[in-house]
């Protein structure tokens, strides 16, 4: 589904990603771990197409299509979703309005008619139920005045609404209490299917107790320095990142 080969990317002349290789197939959950500042969030941003990063080399293929040069919204409509680490506030724009616009843009991209209003509202309710989100989202402005936990739950809710093939969750667990963390994990587990994939970026092993990954990758200094199964996460938990750093030297 996603194939990254020798990806190098920089910002303002500073190289952040120094040759990433990653293969993600349908039905898989990949965890990307690593200390702060090693390029985890940059990798997520580059996959979804944030234009502040410059691709120096390499390729990103999604379902066989070259993503490089494709606008952000087109990648989104192709089925890539990013759960932001710091979701931005958009004052005055209600969640209902925002989601409806997004869904209809996606449908337009896929040659479908806009979703009828009632169906849309039902879908919103259904997803909320499914995710066990009880907050009243509909009439609130996007992320405005949301607590940290609410913002993250809102990201998962949007993911459920947009039903992506590839969802990247960028440190969705940071700043969450245990209850919120469970809701986020529950969301991912509920939405997990054989035909979609997840990349879960996290600093801590904690989230992976709830979302069990098929693969764990350790990102360090712009490279994936270790890959393995879920046991790698436990190893990291025991030994800490120092272990990786030392192994590098």
């Amino acid at each position: 589904m996603l194939s990254i080969k020798n990806l190098r990317a920089s910002i303002e002349g500073k190289e952040i990603l120094k040759g990433i290789n990653l293969e993600v197939r349908a039905g898989e959950v990949h965890a990307i771990m690593g200390p702060n500042g090693t390029g985890k969030s940059t990798l997520a941003s580059v996959i979804v197409g944030r234009d502040i990063f410059v691709i120096e080399e390499g390729e990103i293929l999604f379902k066989g299509k070259n993503l490089i040069g494709m606008p952000v919204e087109e990648r989104a409509n192709e089925g890539i979703f990013l759960g932001f680490q710091y979701p931005v506030e958009i004052p005055g724009v209600s969640m209902t309005n925002f989601m409806r616009t997004a869904i209809n843009e996606q449908r337009k991209y896929r040659g479908l008619d806009p979703m009828p209003a009632q169906e849309f509202l039902n879908s919103m309710e259904e997803k909320k139920r499914l995710l066990e989100i009880h907050a009243k989202l509909a009439n609130r402005s996007v992320n405005e005045g949301f607590s940290g936990g609410e913002k993250k739950k809102n990201e998962i809710f949007q993911m459920a609404m947009l039903n992506p093939e590839l969802a990247i969750l960028d440190e969705t667990d940071s700043g969450l209490d245990i209850d919120a963390l469970k809701i986020v994990a529950h969301g991912v587990n509920t939405l997990r299917r054989p035909d979609n994939a997840f990349i879960v970026i996290t600093h801590y092993q904690r989230l992976l107790e709830y979302i069990v990954p098929d693969f764990v990758h350790v990102l360090f200094d712009g490279r994936i320095v270790r890959s393995g199964g879920k046991e790698l996460a436990f190893e990291l938990e025991d030994k800490g990142y120092e272990w990786i750093k030392e192994a590098q030297v």
Binding site: V72, E73, V88, A102, E105, Q106
Partner: peptide, 16 residues
């Protein structure tokens, strides 16, 4: 960027 990532074009995002 946030709107774009949700599949909303820049033009629509501004309108929104």
């Amino acid at each position: 960027y946030y709107c774009n990532q949700r599949g909303i074009s820049t033009e629509s995002a501004i309108g929104l």
